[in-house]
Design a protein around this nucleic acid. Structure first.
Lengths: 114, 114
DNA sequence: ACGACACTTGAAGACTTCTTCATATGTACC
DNA sequence: GGTACATATGAAGAAGTCTTCAAGTGTCGT
């Protein structure tokens, strides 16, 4: 697997609102699975599936404690990656338009060559 | 569109090897569409589709110059976002395993709570 | 105006991805 | 052992994504 693919795969993990919410919550501190699901407002099963993905990518870790499994970010790099992503994206010309919004005369950010 | 969705959408743009290669190339400096396609080794049409996506997200800009369209990163935030992403991901425990690689006894990074 | 070049665009098909539902596994407590 | 709680997992369907192919638009040179 080459570098581009590796980076792309990992970034894909941050490319979903649900996963982003999970990571953001974990950034505040460890949390048990069920509680996590509740806090980010998703079904337990769905949350578990996403956690598995994040776990496989090495972004989060989970250790069993009694009946629960406590999840946490893997390390500081994950937290920083999150921070940086949010920071730069929020500071990026906030002119999204992905799906050609109808209504805008199509001329938002910079060279919207069209 | 809430913050999580916005960030996720933008990160998705970096979640593909082809787009990552395009951005990495543009990070080195502006480049015309056809040349770009050639340098990252993809079909001209495919490249154009991806450029459109990146353009719509405001990550790159393209201005016409004669017959060609010169593409470039939108601004410093894009370059930094790229750098940071690559940096943190490469420094992350390099134990990917996403698709449950057969062969590994399943116990790579941290709490691979199998 | 015509032909060549540079790029964009739309449609269609092969693939992934995300979510839901149902079921399984693990742990605690009686 | 049996029951309840906490998670994980598999299968299936809906939805989204990427690439290719076949035009379409814009620009230059003659």
């Amino acid at each position: 697997m080459d570098s581009a693919t590796r980076v792309a795969t990992t970034l894909q993990a941050l490319a979903t609102p649900s996963r982003l919410l999970i990571l953001a919550r974990l950034r505040e501190g460890p949390c048990a699975a069920t509680e996590l699901a509740a806090e980010v407002g998703m079904e337990q099963s769905a949350c578990s599936h996403q956690l598995r993905l994040l776990r496989n990518l090495g972004l989060v870790v989970g250790r069993r404690q009694g009946r629960s499994v406590i999840y946490a970010l893997y390390d500081g790099h994950v937290a920083e990656l999150l921070d940086q992503a949010v920071y730069h994206i929020e500071h990026l010309r906030l002119g999204l338009s992905d799906g050609a919004e109808p209504g805008l005369p199509e001329e938002t950010p910079p060279g919207t060559a069209r």
